[in-house]
């Protein structure tokens, strides 16, 4: 591409990005305004919790277990050099509760549930199901979009908590059962160093924010998808890529706000 074309192209992309951001914000507000049905007919939301939460359970639990096990192996190697292998529990718990739990389960949630939601809504649009709903005087944002969004918002913190909990159990399996770190020290050090409000509540807040962001991106990309097979597959890819970047960016912002090193 000649240099003369490069700058207008960048300009167009930025312009387009800002336009989409504004559109997404307007979409978000409309959806919030139309969210009544997601709670007044809660069975609609329960169904989406099933699709986003229950069907993500296995991948979350298995990855949590392995992440915790790897953390324990790596952590033990480093800690025992300084003769403080009893701090293994603290290391595993803090890394999971503060960072890895929310972030990794957010990334898994985006690729497992977010992409599915985008594909589903995109296909409903491509096969005119959303149009048909409108013609039946049913608002698709209230009936289709809002329950999926709230289902994701509710499921995500629970998934992140499960991820952290199974990760800590994985760390316990490797650290205490396999390597033989003292069990009492493992748990008591963890308890004295992990603070409920500072660490656990902040981790839950993170996962709640990630859940809302991923769900919003997923429903927006689906609703905004070009109604063709290619358009839906592009939208699905965009959901995963955008969600992952947004999670990592939001994680940085939230970490900077929460753990300023008191």
């Amino acid at each position: 591409m000649p240099l003369a074309d490069l700058f207008p192209a960048i300009g167009r992309r930025v312009n387009n990005g800002i336009w989409r951001l504004g559109y997404a914000a307007r979409f978000f507000l409309t959806m919030l305004g139309r969210s009544g049905i997601a709670f007044s007919r809660f069975s609609l939301t329960v169904k989406e919790i099933y699709f986003t939460g229950v069907l993500s359970l296995i991948v979350i639990v298995v990855s949590g277990l392995f992440v915790g096990m790897v953390l324990a192996l790596q952590g033990y190697n480093t800690l025992q050099r300084y003769g403080s292998s009893e701090a293994l529990g603290v290391l595993v718990a803090l890394s999971l509760v503060r960072e890895l739990g929310p972030v990794v389960s957010g990334l898994l949630f985006a690729s497992r549930a977010g992409s599915a939601v985008t594909a589903e809504i995109g296909l409903m649009k491509a096969t005119e199901q959303l149009s048909a709903m409108e013609m039946m005087a049913v608002n698709p944002i209230a009936r289709v979009v809002a329950p999926r969004f709230w289902g994701g918002v509710i499921a995500m913190p629970l998934l992140a908590a499960l991820f952290s909990a199974t990760g800590i159990l994985g760390g316990y399996l490797i650290g205490v059962v396999l390597i033989g770190v003292d069990e009492g020290a493992f748990w008591s050090q963890m308890q004295s160093m992990v603070d409920f409000r500072e660490d656990i509540v902040n981790g839950v807040i993170k996962s709640l924010v990630f859940g809302a962001l991923v769900s919003l991106i997923a429903v927006f990309e689906g609703y905004d998808a070009v109604p063709t097979a290619e358009g839906v597959s592009n939208a699905t890819t965009r959901t995963v890529v955008t969600s992952s970047l947004v999670i990592l960016f939001a994680d940085f912002i939230l970490t900077a706000l929460m753990f300023r090193g008191s």
Partner: peptide, 20 residues
């Protein structure tokens, strides 16, 4: 408009049945 649409029915080209 939503009230008026209740008096209308539209059959889409490929039916547009809700697949779920």
């Amino acid at each position: 408009l939503y009230l008026l649409r209740r008096k209308m029915g539209m059959l889409f080209q490929f039916g547009a049945l809700f697949t779920d």
